[in-house]
Design a binder for these strands. Structure first.
Lengths: 326, 326
DNA sequence: CTGAAAGCGCTTACAG
DNA sequence: CTGAAAGCGCTTACAG
């Protein structure tokens, strides 16, 4: 037996489908008697409205499309959790679509969402600005997360603020000779962190050396070892992410160097491991980033207004036991 | 300017909407000439089909509803990743709906999905069997994950197999005196692990003591401390999850006990921290669990067949440095 | 191979 | 307060 439709309810309640619709949507131009009959029929038939049909009629789906690249672990779950929290608060669903490959495939993934969602949250770090412009549907409200574009509202992590906070923290601890283990070349987040860190240290007269990593734990270890073997003097290390910071800690431990007394260490991201290592780091508050993105998008959808330019999402410095005054 | 519809394309291509539809869906009863005109019109208008309308017509959404409780970290991201992988392989989207509160709220969350999805993947550990039966829509194919029910297809983690593997591993290492730190009372996974562990150890004549934890790191530490202070003798500990195992490791380290020489330690879950601790544990292969669930569901949706009873998903023992022969 | 028409399950002016 | 009818944007027998 197929699911009951609004016509079945109307028949059973002996009223028109229009009245059923009005009753179901709690409009006020419905008599109490009609309302009751409808409620009874709904109960008896186990009727559940067909959201798809409703959407087509209203030209409104109450769903938000979320298009993310292949993310792993924390970042993915936290940002989706935040998005879901805000979306369900405001009565929307999340339609998830991972964007695996690049270019053409991404474009078709985005297009397939037309008629399914009222707006889009897109994170596409691997697409060029042109590819992205090509892929984005024109009519649909959209918010880009950590993705540059001139044509769309966006929200980005404030890498500079995070790196600055670490720099100021090091300076306030009296550290004089600092190493930065940078993330992979070409990565925008890594670049912003390195640039801001350098700029923030500049006025203090603290010495800075930048070495290259690739965000992996091993690369953090590998970046520090030559410095130690070369006899370099430094009293603080800022790694561009926590995994590299973990590698740095291992290299220092292996070399018999006391953290934090001799060398202070800080990371970026605040992954769960960081807490376990007692690592001072920058918490990105990813869930809030997701909430914020959905919030912007729903404002656009409902208010019809454009958000006021690209928004920055501030991270927070978390001081733990790998950094102490010198 | 509103988005182009199939009628706009038809007008521009000077054919009927029926022909446009046929051309777009690559049916073979379309002349080359028509096909080209349609393709041109589509390109010129930037036409993208409206998936919502298509769904209503076909009574098929190509979307799978995923209803999960509030999950944190790894488990959530991994299971969603696996589901997404399989879904997009088979041409489906994932519609995410977190199930926050219990009972009535869950039921309405599930109903709201009618007409939006072709099937449901539901994980509802906090609902009673009656509440669940009440909440599940009757007409919709559904697969339950780690959730008991007689009325629906389901897939569950094989806790027993995991616990057994640990037991056999301990025995093969020559451990004679084993402690199990159990998970919270009332938790089904915890119960299954404890029961199977006991049963598997039984025939070997190995001594077993079970102490209570609640899945938190602190509870693992707290569970072991009294044993140490009481002078209890044991040479292996199996904690019902990794976080408690981590607490156990801390307690042992604090007490100056050598792991793994004196006491072997194993956990369950294989969270990222486990790798870092060198903890022997049981990897749940969560992503595969998600893939498997979607696979079952899509088989039901497409084949119309019911899956053959509740499926078990086998975890894998990962041997690291916290367990060695005695 | 093609088009006119009915239908998917809703909502909403419009007229009463 | 109520109902008949048109419409949302597609698909698909049906007839030609």
């Amino acid at each position: 037996m197929p699911d009951a439709t609004i016509r079945d309810v109307a028949r059973r309640a002996q009223v028109s489908v229009a009245s059923v619709s009005r009753a179901l949507n709690n409009l006020d131009n419905v008599s109490d008697r009609t309302r009751e009959r409808v409620a009874d029929a709904v109960r008896e038939l186990g009727y559940v409205p067909h959201a798809g049909a409703r959407s087509l009629s209203l030209a409104r789906t109450n769903a938000v499309g979320v298009v993310l690249p292949d993310l792993h672990g924390e970042f993915f779950s936290e940002i989706v959790r935040g998005m879901d929290r805000e979306a369900s608060n405001r009565g929307y669903f999340l339609l998830l679509s991972n964007m695996h490959a690049g270019g053409a495939q991404s474009a078709s993934a985005l297009r397939a969402l037309r008629g399914r969602v009222d707006g889009l949250i897109v994170m596409a770090p691997h697409l060029s600005e042109e590819e992205l412009a090509e892929a984005m549907p024109s009519g649909t409200p959209a918010v880009l997360v950590n993705t540059r574009s001139n044509d769309h509202a966006g929200i980005r992590l404030d890498n500079a603020a995070g790196a600055c906070a670490v720099a100021e923290h090091f300076v306030s601890l009296g550290r004089k000779c600092v190493v930065h283990v940078a993330g992979p070349a070409g990565n925008v987040d890594a670049q912003e962190r390195a640039d801001a860190f350098r700029a923030a240290l500049e006025p203090s007269g603290v010495a800075l050396e930048i070495v290259q990593g690739d965000f992996s734990e091993e690369s953090g270890e590998a970046a520090i070892e030559p410095l130690l073997q070369g006899g370099a003097k430094f009293d603080a290390v800022f790694a561009a992410n926590d995994m590299m910071a973990s590698g740095v800690l291992q290299a220092l431990r292996t070399a018999g160097i006391d953290v934090p007394a001799q060398v202070a260490v800080a990371g970026f991201d605040d992954v769960p491991l960081a807490r376990h290592l007692g690592l001072t780091t920058v918490n990105v508050r990813i869930a809030e980033l997701g909430e914020h993105a959905v919030d912007c998008l729903l404002d656009m959808i409902e208010g019809g207004e454009t958000a006021e330019g690209p928004q920055l999402h501030s991270p927070e410095l978390i001081i733990r036991s790998t950094t102490v005054p010198k």
